[in-house]
Amino acid sequence: MSSPQPLLLDLAVHAAAVAHEARSVCPCGEATLADRSDGVVVRHGDTVAKAHAPDTDPGELKTRIDTAARLTDVFLTPLARTPVRLYGRLVSFWPHGSPVDPDDPDAAPWEAVATLLALLHRTPVTADLPVMRGPLKAARAVARLRADAGGHPAVGPIGRAWATLPAWARGEAPFPESGILCHGDLHLGQLVRLPGATGWRLIDVDDLGAGNPAWDLARPAAWFACGLLASDEWGRFLGAYRAAGGPAVPADGDPWPALDVPARALTVQTAARMVAKALADGRSLDDVETCVVDACARMASLPAQLTQDPAK
């Protein structure tokens, strides 16, 4: 569901105000970068305003923004520590960065994102930090599919794969290891680079929190398991994460006892979102979407590995 038009217009006005306060000269280029029910993002010049989901907790968002502001080597630095409220939505402000080029997958900075994750995971968790929301988002994606998809044939294998997961991976129980700082929704779209900068930074703090760090490795792991990520790219990502001292997997040996359950959960979440989008577009599943649904069907017949404590 798209946002109300007045929210988009006023969000642009607020973005412009922050841009002009922050800089004496404003490029004044404007664009809507995202318009979803869980996030509306507007750019004015080199300033970005994000209206967060309507159910966002103010205190938790403030803590997440403060955390990003402290971790300048990992996250894009917010332009303001305290969000404002607009049409019932909390709004935060950020510098605009250049994303990874989706049309040049060979140039994807796998080593950079792996190193940033390792730095994030090695950062001590503060007592006020909320729980990482990754499993909750996966559960919502499955619930929305069940509510909206009717008799679509993909709902069955997706639901059966979901049912094989332990309660913590479905957002129904605490993490088996919850003392590590996690991004919560890691993918290449969460990586940007500021003009003139050589290093990459993470964006999107909505799901940041204490949790199982394997969740942040789970999407590339799922892509690799589904055959959507080449073994060379997966090896580069995993090798860089280990080289940087990341705690989500053992320093050597088989990483899958730690990654299997989170990778399965992200596969189910991805499949649920893909099917929902295909239904909304009124079309059949494409080859990639079919591949992910087929992976769910295989998962339902294979037992998941027990999640390994990354601290051991």
Rank of each mutant, 00 (worst) to 15 (best):
Q190S: 15
L191I: 12
L191Y: 12
L191K: 08
L191C: 09
L191S: 09
L191N: 08
V192F: 12
V192G: 08
V192W: 11
V192P: 13
R193Q: 12
R193F: 13
R193Y: 11
R193G: 14
R193E: 14
R193D: 10
R193C: 13
L194G: 15
L194S: 13
L194H: 08
L194P: 12
L194K: 10
L194N: 12
P195S: 12
P195E: 14
G196L: 14
G196F: 10
G196P: 09
G196I: 10
G196M: 09
G196H: 07
G196E: 06
G196A: 09
A197Y: 09
A197H: 14
A197K: 07
A197M: 12
T198P: 02
T198V: 11
T198K: 15
T198G: 15
G199C: 15
G199D: 14
G199V: 12
G199S: 12
G199Q: 10
G199F: 09
W200K: 02
W200G: 05
W200Q: 07
R201G: 00
R201M: 04
R201I: 02
R201Y: 04
R201L: 06
L202M: 09
L202C: 03
L202W: 00
I203P: 01
I203W: 06
I203R: 01
I203E: 01
I203H: 02
D204T: 04
D204K: 02
D204R: 01
D204V: 07
D204P: 04
V205I: 06
V205D: 07
V205L: 01
V205E: 12
D206G: 10
D206P: 03
D206V: 00
D207C: 07
D207M: 05
D207S: 10
D207K: 00
D207W: 07
D207T: 14
L208E: 03
L208P: 01
L208G: 00
L208R: 03
G209W: 13
G209S: 12
G209R: 11
G209I: 08
G209D: 09
A210D: 02
A210P: 01
A210N: 03
A210W: 05
A210K: 02
G211D: 09
G211P: 04
G211N: 05
G211F: 06
G211W: 03
G211E: 11
N212S: 14
P213D: 08
P213V: 05
P213W: 07
P213E: 06
P213A: 08
A214I: 05
A214E: 03
A214F: 05
A214C: 05
A214R: 01
W215Y: 12
W215H: 13
W215A: 08
W215Q: 11
W215R: 06
D216R: 04
D216I: 05
D216E: 05
L217W: 03
A218V: 03
A218F: 02
A218G: 02
A218P: 00
A218Y: 01
A218E: 00
R219P: 00
R219V: 14
R219F: 14
R219Q: 12
R219W: 15
R219T: 10
R219N: 13
